[in-house]
């Protein structure tokens, strides 16, 4: 036996863990058909770890849903497969390509895959009849997220109405929905980026290798470092450089930049983040940069 707490103090990380586990169990008990939105990124992997703890030794009482942009990093997909296999979880893949073919999503050549995910995601939720979808969003990420509830109600069209949010008191969550509506659930609401990394470090959680510093051919564009690949090639005047980089988020590879880094393990990443002066989204997500209200707009439409 471990953990004899003579002073009955629980560290903040343990308190966050306890709160998230409580949320997972509450949703599994009250919703008919929950699903966990799994991107393969570090936040959704931490969610998966917490879900594993919440129901151990039983298997997860819900499947995972991945929206496949067709532009995911290979390293992310292989980590996903390894988690799915270890937990014996069921994986539902919703493909943006298929959604475009079926006419649920319009590809106008200008809209980023991140934004097109909205259509594919909402379509998958509706087709499968999911009533609750866990997401890895954190309130420290962005100003609009700071006001979102743990249980975030979505109407028939999957939209979020920030002015009509239900009050959320104590740890009493209200999961009432009407047919056709669903609830987004954010078990990591109170975690910060640093908490996530400390937890990955403490629990020795397997995450995609591109989070750690590695050598990669990159090009600098709009102040971001983008990885050279099938979609990203140098334009006039741009030069390709080999740099030690790592990714702080792992979205669509055409939109997600990397940062120069020598951090090859979680301890080094924690040190790096502790002194970082730019938020993770501001540094590396092209899709949040268009306006101060970019995230709020995407959320209203039904983004994660």
């Amino acid at each position: 036996m471990t953990n004899t707490h003579v002073d009955y103090q629980l560290s903040q990380l343990d308190q966050l863990e306890a709160e998230s586990i409580h949320i997972f169990r509450e949703v599994a008990a009250e919703f008919e058909k929950p699903v966990l939105m799994f991107s393969g990124g570090k936040d959704s992997i931490v969610m998966l770890r917490l879900a594993e703890k919440a129901f151990f030794p039983a298997k997860l009482p819900f499947p995972l849903l991945q929206v496949d942009t067709g532009l995911d990093f290979d390293e992310v997909l292989s980590t996903r497969d390894s988690w799915v296999e270890r937990l014996g979880a069921r994986l539902v893949v919703a493909s943006v390509e298929d959604a475009i073919k079926a006419g649920h999503v319009v590809d106008d050549g200008k809209t980023s895959r991140n934004r097109q995910q909205i259509g594919a995601l909402l379509n998958a939720i509706e087709e499968n009849g999911f009533t609750a979808a866990f997401g890895g969003g954190r309130r420290d990420e962005e100003k609009a997220r700071a006001k979102e509830r743990v249980y975030s109600h979505r109407d028939d069209f999957g939209q979020w109405d920030p002015k009509m949010q239900r009050p959320e008191l104590w740890s009493l969550y209200n999961g009432r929905i009407h047919a056709g509506e669903h609830m987004r659930i954010f078990p990591l609401s109170n975690w910060t980026e640093l908490d996530i990394w400390h937890y990955i470090h403490r629990e020795q959680i397997e995450i995609p290798s591109i989070y750690f510093a590695h050598e990669r051919e990159v090009v600098e564009r709009d102040g971001m470092l983008l990885s050279i690949g099938p979609e990203i090639q140098p334009k006039g005047g741009e030069t390709v450089e080999k740099k030690m980089v790592r990714f702080r988020t792992v979205g669509d590879r055409t939109q997600t930049g990397c940062v120069e880094s020598v951090a090859t393990d979680t301890a080094a990443i924690i040190d790096e983040i502790a002194i970082a002066r730019v938020t993770e989204r501001g540094a590396t997500r092209g899709d949040d940069r268009f306006s101060e209200a970019a995230m709020e707009d995407r959320k209203k439409e039904g983004y994660f």
Binding site: L13, S78, T79, H198, R202, E206, D265, A267, I270, D271
Partner: peptide, 17 residues
């Protein structure tokens, strides 16, 4: 390929505790 993080150092545990 996936990587497994390395073990704990004293200075990285502060946030957790």
């Amino acid at each position: 390929m996936a990587s497994t993080p390395q073990t704990t150092d004293a200075h990285t545990t502060a946030q957790g505790e």
